[in-house]
């Protein structure tokens, strides 16, 4: 049978999916083993048990200086910034995106500006943000907003414009006002696509969060890994990277599940990302 027609069973698919992960871990363990044979104090590729120990120290042993459980404090602070930034970005994306996608005059006036704004590399704005908003929480949140909102606005506007014109006309013949069409036709139709936009927006959001924390912060996941970098503490950095990845993955899956649950009509149409 041709390769394109051979489909893996559920079990095979699972093992095929796990194989690259296992291979990566094994490769790491082997490399780490041989490096530590040469130099037992090697810091570059710490052993898996060392990393587990470091991770559990970060998670369960109170910090000697402040008495905090560092991992959880960092996670909480970072997620708080991420949520605030994404929250503002979502509000902007919904309000401006619907206006641009639905009202031709608003489109003419806002679309070129947003398109231009979205081309500014957000990191170049970071110094400006630090100067305007200081080194506190606000500038980090603003960086996430600046980095994610323009793309999300354009994505929402595009989804609004892709709503079949027939549906809008139908709503008009049913006597709907512009506002009623926005809340009963446009908004519900784009909400599932907004979730997709959030999922895609989270990728750059994490980048900007970690960058902002690395540059000026006193807590957060990004702050921590850049702090311990000075001591070459790979046994903390690597688990932190895995932990950040896991958080990002869980967030993404939660959003997908929420979308499936809240918008069954959308997923009935046979689409899945």
């Amino acid at each position: 049978m041709r390769l394109i027609n051979r489909k893996p069973s559920r079990a095979t698919a699972f093992f095929l999916g796990m194989a690259p992960f296992v291979a990566a871990i094994v490769a790491y363990a082997v490399a780490s083993h041989y490096r530590r044979l040469d130099n037992p104090a090697d810091k570059l590729l710490p052993s898996l048990p060392d990393m587990a120990a470091a991770f559990s120290r970060m998670a369960f042993t109170p910090d000697r200086r402040s008495g905090d459980l560092l991992l959880w404090m960092d996670t909480f602070d970072s997620l708080e910034r991420l949520a605030a930034g994404m929250g503002v970005a979502v509000v902007l994306a919904l309000s401006l995106g619907i206006l641009i996608g639905f009202i031709p005059n608003a489109r003419s006036s806002l679309a070129p500006f947003i398109a231009t704004f979205s081309l500014i590399p957000p990191i170049t704005i970071l110094p400006i943000l630090f100067i305007i908003f200081g080194l506190g929480e606000l500038s980090k949140i603003m960086l996430i907003v600046v980095g994610t909102a323009p793309v999300m606005i354009r994505s929402v506007a595009q989804s609004v414009m892709e709503i079949p014109r027939e549906l809008i006309i139908k709503a008009e013949t049913l006597g709907a006002s512009v506002w009623q069409m926005m809340v009963r036709v446009v908004l519900p139709q784009i909400l599932p696509k907004l979730i997709t936009a959030i999922r895609l927006g989270l990728v750059p959001a994490w980048i900007f969060l970690i960058s902002a924390e690395a540059i000026a912060s006193t807590s957060g996941l990004g702050y921590r890994i850049f702090l311990v970098r000075r001591y070459l503490a790979m046994d903390v950095i690597l688990p932190y990277v895995v932990w950040i990845t896991l958080l990002a993955f869980i967030l993404d899956r939660l959003l997908l599940m929420a979308s499936r649950r809240a918008f069954p009509w959308h997923h009935l149409q046979g689409e899945s990302l």
Binding site: E166, A171, E172, T173, P188
Partner: peptide, 20 residues
């Protein structure tokens, strides 16, 4: 100059709201 309720319409496709 725009669609109003005095004229009803049925299209071949996209005539009903998929989210309702």
């Amino acid at each position: 100059p725009e669609p109003t309720p005095d004229r009803g319409i049925v299209f071949q496709r996209y005539s009903v709201f998929p989210h309702l």
